[in-house]
Design a binder for these strands. Structure first.
Lengths: 207, 207
DNA sequence: GTCTATACTATGATAGAC
DNA sequence: GTCTATCATAGTATAGAC
């Protein structure tokens, strides 16, 4: 009895989270009101407050899941690689994992990006800490590339990492997976990031 | 008399536009209410409606100025170059102009990016048309690079242009011009976009 | 061109029945 | 765990004086 209700509670809470993320992404946090969220989750607005103490708590939960899912996706994708994997392959895997996470958890991740300012100071700080942790995975990856000689040693990793992030995150504004698959896009971005767009007299032999 | 009032009207309208852009960027369109805008512009909320018929019209004006200023900046920067300018120099100039426009018209451009969904369908469509026009300037630039042999002919220009846009627009999330100047950042991004981050056996001779 | 005062609507949240 | 009913507040916009 207790278990069954607890489970049902979790299911409703989860459904709320899903539809909230979807609406927050689509219309923005402030433009979405609790009655809409309730309607999309097949309940009445009063019932929301059994699961979450406030609309803000719902946003916090959405943003939390976004950054955790993204971090998890890229982290495990990299950890699953054999130790001798080339830098090019590692970069490709990280780019692919990030891109696919944007797809799979898109509602959470895009809502999260748009709504950072709506979080109260303390929660925002905590969320930014998690974002920095995620960025560190990428910095480690790039630093490893320099250590192995695959990446130019004179490069400043910080802006480069941000350039790649920008290219990656901006895909949510234009990429249509029906016209160009995630795999293909990852491939193109990996190639662009590594080799650039210039015509070089001598190209890398392998590819 | 008529002229003086007209001028004063334009000054107040312009001030309204400036503070609205600033608040829209900082707190978001929906989180900003007309009383705040009025207070920041040293007037009372009722007076706003003499200059703009609605809060939405104010947003529309902000977004309009954003995309026009950006287009103008990059377009004229490229047009001012002598015809024989190298592709590398052209790319550098375009990147620099875009980056500096984000700085100079930051309130307008960032507010514009965050608030697209808040525009009604018809205005949004028109705004997207202007954005596409801007993107075309970049596609022309890149196509010119291919024509001159500076850019690899096998590259698909569309995603590449979007990668560069992403890297460029994302700077608003992290770039602190006090720590790394716009010039230096433009230089880094140009180099990254052209040559990539890989260590190549043979590098381009000039640079 | 700007003010004051106010109409009207929508919102987040709560109380209490079931 | 969900409902109905309602409160309190905040929002955009308007009317009319100056």
């Amino acid at each position: 009895m207790t278990e069954r209700s607890a489970m049902k509670g979790e299911i409703s809470g989860e459904r709320l989270l899903q539809v909230a993320a979807h609406l927050f992404r689509q219309r923005g946090y402030l433009a979405t009101n609790v009655r809409e969220i309730a309607r999309a989750a097949n309940m009445k607005s009063g019932s929301i407050y059994y699961h979450y103490p406030s609309k803000e708590a719902l946003l916090e939960a959405v943003m939390n899941r976004a950054i955790l899912a993204l971090t998890q996706a890229v982290k495990t994708a990299l950890e699953d690689l054999p130790p001798d994997t080339s830098f090019r392959a590692r970069l490709r895997v990280a780019i692919d994992a990030h891109l696919k996470a944007i797809h799979e958890y898109g509602d959470f991740i895009i809502a999260s990006r748009q709504s950072l300012e709506m979080l109260p100071e303390s929660e925002r700080k905590e969320h930014l800490r998690l974002r920095r942790q995620y960025a560190d995975i990428w910095r480690e990856l790039l630093a490893g590339g320099q250590a192995s000689g695959a990446v130019r040693p004179d490069l400043d990793i910080v802006p480069v990492q941000m350039f790649i992030f920008g290219a990656l995150n901006w895909t949510s504004e234009w990429l249509d997976p029906k016209r160009r698959s995630y795999e293909r896009t990852s491939e193109l971005l990996t190639e662009f990031a590594l080799d650039g767009l210039a015509e070089h007299r001598t190209r890398r032999p392998t590819r």
